[in-house]
Amino acid sequence: MAYSEKVMDHFANPRNVGEIPDADGVGEVGNPKCGDIMRMYIKVDGDVITDVKFKTFGCGAAIATSSMATELIKGKKIEDALKLTNKAVMEALDGLPPVKVHCSVLAEQAIKSAVADYYKKKGIDPAPIVGDIPECESCACEL
């Protein structure tokens, strides 16, 4: 398994690990059976994500993509955060081995899921804004 230096850096020194007790939105994707769970907490002020934290159960790539994704959306507008693709997360990490691409997909989904939760809490239907977040789509796990 050849990880880039950036992946190893984010694995060894993950940014934004932890929880936000009074988070405005919390999203969780993945499942323990597949071996990956990502939980993301966001704090929103106006339309800006002012703070973001994560907790992840998973492999090195899962932890590194979570960390990188939080860095990429912190301080960004919600609409920009929703535009973040798994590809952008991968590129920011100087790539991932092919079998680990699904980890970057999970990171993208974790953000969307946290934003969806934020809208739900505000009484707004997230579906038209966030779109569908299929559960663990690339794992195709049977639960």
């Binding site: 694995f11 071996g35 998973g58 492999c59 790539a61």
Partner: peptide, 23 residues
């Protein structure tokens, strides 16, 4: 915890081991 992240952490400290994790 997941086995691969365990192995990577061990490797960072100079220990080579293995895991039966999917990853």
């Amino acid at each position: 915890i997941e086995g691969e992240s365990l192995l990577l952490s061990l490797d960072l400290q100079g220990v080579c081991a293995s895991s039966g994790s999917a990853c």
